[in-house]
């Protein structure tokens, strides 16, 4: 699928991509899986509620996604550092080797806006706790799905100039300190895609994702290698299901 993209700042190579709810491939099954029902089916009543949530989600998602492509000015093996437009990142030893061979990087951000979040809160207040919970879970799955689409878009756009891309990495994952969100957002226009950052590095709207993707002739997309990572309770390693000890996913 080819997505339309528009320049925000041509010189700085900042773009916003048009993604509509119809472009997503989000399914009830995926959400059920995310809340625990994998290998065991969810009660019909719950599935019905997820369907009801999904049928209203299109109107409640204000999807925005964008990125900036920047040359990597400098790489420091010794401290796993990357210099991008004068900003020095320390993505730590799991991410750094993946990006190291890249010449450029895409710094991205996506969001679905506040409405799903507000709706979920409203449902909780009205006592419709189950639907409130499902709306929150659906919103999370939707953001992830949008991030996949943006990732695919960047991949196909880079392929046009025979460049390859890496996996995407987010501050707060793989030991990359979440406080570097401030560095990441300093490279993007203020309020990029409608996202702002609090002092404690929380993005608002809450249902947002940010990160980096390496771009280059010699980079590759690899299967996640969780063995290298010390973060035992990360999503990519585990679905820390309620009551469950960490389980290796991939």
């Amino acid at each position: 699928m080819s997505l339309k993209y528009l320049p925000v700042d041509v010189e700085k190579e900042i773009y916003e991509v048009e993604i509509s709810f119809k472009d997503l491939s989000i399914t009830r099954k995926e959400i059920e899986h995310d809340i625990g029902y994998s290998g065991i089916s969810a009660p019909e009543h719950f599935s019905g509620i997820i369907d009801a949530v999904l049928s209203r989600a299109a109107d409640k998602c204000g999807i925005r996604a964008g990125y900036r492509i920047i040359d990597i000015q400098k790489k420091e093996d010794a401290n796993h550092g990357l210099l991008l437009d004068g900003v020095f990142f320390s993505p730590d030893k799991i991410i750094y080797p993946q990006i190291k061979k890249a010449e450029r990087a895409a710094m991205f951000a996506v969001t679905i806006g506040r409405e799903m979040e507000l709706w979920s809160g409203e449902l909780f207040r009205r006592g419709e706790i189950l639907m409130g919970y499902m709306a929150d879970a659906a919103a999370s799955s939707i953001v992830e799905n949008i991030t996949d689409l943006l990732h695919d878009h960047i991949r196909s756009r880079m392929l046009e100039s025979e460049m390859k891309i890496t996996n995407r990495y987010s501050p707060g994952y793989c030991n990359w300190n979440v406080s570097e969100q401030h560095l990441l957002f300093s490279l993007l226009p203020k309020n990029f895609c409608g996202i702002s950052l609090t002092e404690s590095s929380l993005m608002l709207p809450v249902k947002s994702v940010s990160g980096i993707i390496g771009i280059g002739k010699n980079v590759r997309y690899s299967k996640y290698n969780c063995n290298r990572c010390a973060v035992k309770d990360c999503t990519y390693r585990t679905r820390r299901r309620p009551g469950e000890k960490a389980v290796v996913l991939k």
Binding site: Y37, I40, A42, P43, F46, I129, M134, G243
Partner: peptide, 17 residues
Amino acid sequence: KFGRNEVFVPELLMSAK
């Protein structure tokens, strides 16, 4: 049942309700 992963948060919520 929750402890044995036979049910998840939604079932707990229904019981709480």
